[in-house]
Every structure is written in C-alpha cells, then in structure tokens.
Design a protein around this nucleic acid. Structure first.
Lengths: 201, 201
DNA sequence: GAGATATTGGAGTATCAACTCCAAAATCGC
DNA sequence: GCGATTTTGGAGTTGATACTCCAATATCTC
C-alpha cells in the first residue's frame, strides 16, 4: 500500500541511495560508512535520505536485501544449468573472474556484511542467515540433480556437500581478499569439485 | 631499547588494555569499538591508554599480533601431533568445542579482523596475511608429514590442500557464526578430511 | 491545469569520540 | 631512602556524525 507512494523519480533516488550505501558499506564496513559519505556518493541531501529511510538500520536492511538478490542472481546464472562437473568448473571460473575484475577487493558482499554485522545487529544476522540458506539451497538442488542423473554417488549427502561447498567459497573469498590473490578461491572450490568428482566413481 | 622502559605494573596495564581491546574489537568490530569502551573494559584512564599506545591504529596492530599468537598456539596444540586422519578429527573437535563454548559468537578472531580491516587498513591487511600464511604453513607441514609416512597419496599437493583446508575452516566458522550453529564448521572440515581420506587409497 | 502529494535544499542541533595536557602519585635502580 | 623515571587521574578541546526541521519545488491524478 505504501509501495505506490513512490514516484518514478523517487524510486530512482531511492535506488541510487541503496546502490551507493551498498558499495561503501561492503568496501569499508558498515560502521565506517557515514550517512554523509552515502549522501555524497549518491548525490542527495540529508532530507532526501531520511525521506526514504528512517535511519541507518533501515538502510543496512535494504542493502542486505539488494545484495542478496544480486548474489543469488549471479549464482543462478552460473548454477542454472548445473548438471555436470564441467558446469561446476564454469561456475568457479565465473566467481574467480568477478573477483579478479575487482582486484580481489571486497570479498563476498554477503560474507563481508555477515562478518561485520553478526555480532552487533541481530536483525541483520537473521536476514543474512536467510540469504545464505537460499544460496546453500541453490547449490544443494544442483547436487541433487546430479545425483538423480547418476553423476554423483547415491550415498553422497547433497545437503552436507552444499554446506561444505558454500564454506569453501566463503573461506576462499576471505583468503583471496586478504592476500589480494584469486588463487585461494580457485583452489578451495577446485578442491571441493575434485571431491565431488571422486564421489562419482 | 625502549622495551625495558616498562615496569611490571606497566606491562600488566598494557596487557589488560590489549586484552580488552581484542575482546571488544572482535566481538563488535574495530570501528564500533570506541577508545572509551576499551578504557571502561580495561579499567584505565585516557592518559593510561595513550601512554602505552599512540592511537587506535597501534592498538589494532597490537591486537592482531596477540590474536595471531593465540590462534597459532591453539593450532599448535591441536596440530602438534598431526600424523593421521584421527588426529585431524581431534583437531576438528577442538575447534568445534571452542566454537560451541562461545555459542558460535565471534567466529574466527583472525577471520573477523581480516574481513573488518582488509579494505580500510592496508597495514593491518598485510599483518593478517602473514598470520594466515603461518597458519597455512602449519597445516601444510602436517600434510607433508602424513605424505612422508604414506598416509596421503604421493601425488596429492599438500600446499593446495592446506589452502583448501584453511578456507574450509574460515568459511565454516563464518557460516556457523551467522547461523549460531556449530554444524557448518564441523561439516566443512569433515568434508575436507573425507577428501584427504579418499586421497589415501 | 489545479490540487494533493511526493520530493528536495540546506541550515541547524545534540551527542559522541578521539585525543591532549599537566600535575600528582607510584615504582625502580642504587 | 633518594632521585629519576614511569604511571596515573581527570577535566578539557576539537571535530565528526546521526538526525531534525521547515519551507520551496517538482510530480502525479483527475
């Protein structure tokens, strides 16, 4: 009902604010990102920002929502046709490529926010737990499909393997971020792919 | 030379400050931790804190140094006798136990600091990269020993496996922190142990 | 195109956080 | 014990930050 109270121009302004906030919060952390930074980056005045968001918390929530959608979208485009070891390799290349494009800066948007907010914002923590659950679900479904097609051993546990794969992605991204080198992500994911491959025999 | 200018009492005060700063910075993030918070937690006055540290940056550096030593110490006690798949299982239990003790709060001290500081403090990033390199080296050496004893396939690559294992630990800790559930860490590390086990055949 | 509503500009405020200063007290070497 | 040095107390300063307010303007609906 309140959704339609936004004009086209208003929606554009709101989007611009969220995009600027996301970039800054992920890049330098939520606490280090000031409202003034966001205003400058989005090119808006204080009254504009507070017209669309009651405060910083609401902005954080909007950023998490937007980043969740974006990450799941990318995952979907990479995992959409997950039906073989080869497609997993493509998926790895997709992530390594994105990471290389940004010179390994920022790590995983969701991972960074999770590490940043888990202990200081319980609401955000739960929101992020949901995001990871969706991501994990996407991976699990792919593995189940592989299993149904006989490309994965029948006694393998897709649920556990999905958790391990997501952990490899997150841990690999963190190590790559710290070292400014895409190798850790590539190695971590490759090792998990090898593991799946071994389970196929 | 300046090292001996610290009295026993002074050393105790300094240690108290670092311990308080470490707890707060890891728990709620560096930027959210104020000097005043640290003063209160350590029971010291502003002049005391600034007597031992020129500013917040120096305090961050001291915290990283202390946490690195502590994590490597724990790893050493768990990895010291790394000579079999069984000892890896004990190592996993050690980490899961520690995580459970703190109700999955905080994640990995080094991982939290790395995610927090990588983009905003280049000096800290390099310091943390060194810490992870040491940790990785510890794991790698264990795997090399296993390989020499024939408990790991000769064509396995201990260097890559060590990176993958560390990524599994970091990713598992992050997911466990977000979900407040030790299972992801356990599953991620177990999956890597399974992988090593498979490579033994 | 007129009126209701959404959007915007920009000055202002109260609070908080990092850091300073100087003098008093405790500690150490001899 | 005495002098040099380290350690401590606590008030104060400067700047930043989240958020407010109100009037002016643009945009939609009909």
């Amino acid at each position: 009902m309140t959704t339609q109270r936004l004009t086209r121009k208003g929606q554009a302004t709101r989007d611009r604010i969220v995009a600027a906030a996301a970039r800054l919060m992920i890049e330098q952390g939520v606490a280090r990102t000031t409202i003034e930074d966001i205003q400058a980056a989005a090119g808006v005045s204080p009254s504009q920002l507070y017209h669309y968001f009651p405060g910083k918390d609401a902005l954080v929530s909007a950023v998490i929502e937007q980043q969740t959608a974006q990450v799941l979208e990318i995952q979907h485009s990479g995992l959409g046709s997950l039906d073989s070891i080869d497609s997993l390799a493509n998926w790895r290349d997709l992530m390594v490529g994105i990471l290389t494009d940004v010179q390994c800066a920022g790590g995983c948007p969701l991972g960074s926010l999770a590490s940043d907010l888990s202990e200081s914002d319980p609401v955000a923590r739960i929101q992020l737990a949901g995001a990871f659950a969706q991501w994990e679900g996407l991976i699990r479904e792919g593995l189940v499909q592989m299993q149904e097609r006989g490309e994965l051993a029948a006694d393998a546990d897709p649920a556990e393997l999905a958790v391990a794969m997501l952990a490899a992605v997150q841990g690999g991204l963190l190590l790559s971020q710290v070292r400014r080198d895409p190798a850790p992500l590539r190695i971590a994911v490759d090792t998990m792919i090898d593991h799946l491959h071994a389970l196929t025999r």
